[in-house]
Structures are given as C-alpha cells and as structure tokens.
Design a protein around this nucleic acid. Structure first.
Lengths: 111, 111
DNA sequence: TCTGGGTGCTACATTATCCGTAGCACCCAA
DNA sequence: TTGGGTGCTACGGATAATGTAGCACCCAGA
C-alpha cells in the first residue's frame, strides 16, 4: 500500500489534512507498537519480531517500509532506529501509557 | 472483532500491557479520526459519515461499536459524543496536529 | 572448504478486515 | 399516505494481516 503523505491521503481520510495523514499511517496494525519498541533503542528485525510477539515477518517488513518511507525510522548499523522526527512522535505517544492505566481502571470498574 | 481490553490483548499485541491495548484499539482505520471529529462536539451517524469522507457505513458502525465498548464514546441525545475519558484521550491526540505540520515540512524538504 | 547456526527477508495460502452499494425500518412533516 | 431524512444492516468483492515455509547471506568453527 502506498504511503500516506501529508496533504495527500491515500486510504481515504477525513479531509486530507496532515494530521489525518498521520492517523492514516499510525492507524495500521503494529505501527505504534513498533515505534514504542524502538524508543528503547535500535533493534534488529529479529529483535522486533520477538518483542512484537505475534507479528508475522511479512507484515513487520511492510510496516518497517511504511515507517521508513515516512521518515520516522531508519536503518542504522545497529538496526532499525527512530529518526529525530520519529523520536518527537514518540514523545507524543509517551503520555498514552499513563492514560492507558486510567482507562484500564475505568473498564475494571464497569465489570 | 472483540474489543481489546487492557491486559487482555485480542489481536496479539506486544506484551499485553494496557498501552498496547490502546494501540490495538486505535490502530484501526478511522478510530483516531472519529475521536478527532467528535472533539468538536457530538455528531450524528450521518454527520460523521460525511466528515469522514470515504468511510463506509458498515465500518463506521463497527468502529463506533468498538469505541463505545471501550468507553471512549457514548450515544447521547445529540448523537455520538466523547465520554470524559475519551475527551482525555483526545487531549493526548491534540499535539499530533502541530507535529504533523513539522512532519509535512520534513517530507517536502526531501522531495 | 564445508557444515551449521543466526539473521534478514520473501512467497504464498488462509483468514480477517475493509470498502461500496443496496436497501430496510423508523420517524416526522406535508 | 407519500416523501424525504436518519440510523443502520447485509452482502459481495477488494485489500490487508496472519502463519508457515524457506531462501540468501554472513560468520564461526572443524
């Protein structure tokens, strides 16, 4: 699948705004999980495969390609790593961890 | 598809942590876009359908069900609306807009 | 040099998910 | 009671994800 570019939504997004292109890119399986994993440092293909338990290599490869073409990750001597702007994106993802705790509590309450 | 619950990943996520359950839920088409749209206030089914240009009603319905079961949105007299915790999640999504601008510039530079 | 094991990735069939369109039930106003 | 708007479901085809197998490459040891 083609890579969504800001202003040129591929998958049919809301209005073609850059933020929707982001949602388009991140709204794919494993995309955010991969970024999350790479935040701890560069990782090899195999390494990512094991930390993303059940991802198949073909999808991992495809997602890595997406993220690389989007400029969020790059292939270094140490393996795949976040780029500067990818790291910035991770900083936005970071607060999700705390929120998810609240969310979990909220759901537990209901059950 | 079953709803991912914190601690009980459905689709096979990294490690079953709550944050991965979030990524599992949001890593579906339109999920973040719907939340983004609802941040401007409650919206009807039709309303969402038009603001999410090319979403099909069946997928929209499915996503709304996902988000409702996850407790992020609810059906009010005014239509679908963010819950309190859904609104909190939107606050985390908000900074993506600014970042996406940077990202767009970054990509333009490369081309 | 020739195993043998680790790594990165591809191929392919199966399954799940998404999309597009049609259409039904409901409400309300004319 | 007809017509139009709204909320949603059904279904067939397209697209994406999964699971498994396996190939090419490198390097270490015999």
């Amino acid at each position: 699948m083609a890579i969504p570019r800001p202003g040129k939504p591929v998958r049919g997004s809301l209005s073609g705004t850059p933020v929707m292109a982001v949602f388009d890119l991140l709204g794919r399986r494993w995309a955010m999980g991969i970024i999350w994993n790479l935040s701890r440092g560069a990782a090899s293909f195999r390494n990512l495969q094991t930390s993303c338990e059940s991802i198949s290599p073909s999808v991992l490869n495809s997602r890595l390609k997406d993220l690389r073409e989007a400029g969020l990750i790059e292939l270094t001597d140490d393996g795949y790593a976040l780029t500067a702007i990818g790291e910035e994106l991770f900083q936005l993802l970071k607060p999700f961890k705390e929120w998810s705790g609240k969310w979990a509590d909220h759901i537990d309450q209901k059950n």
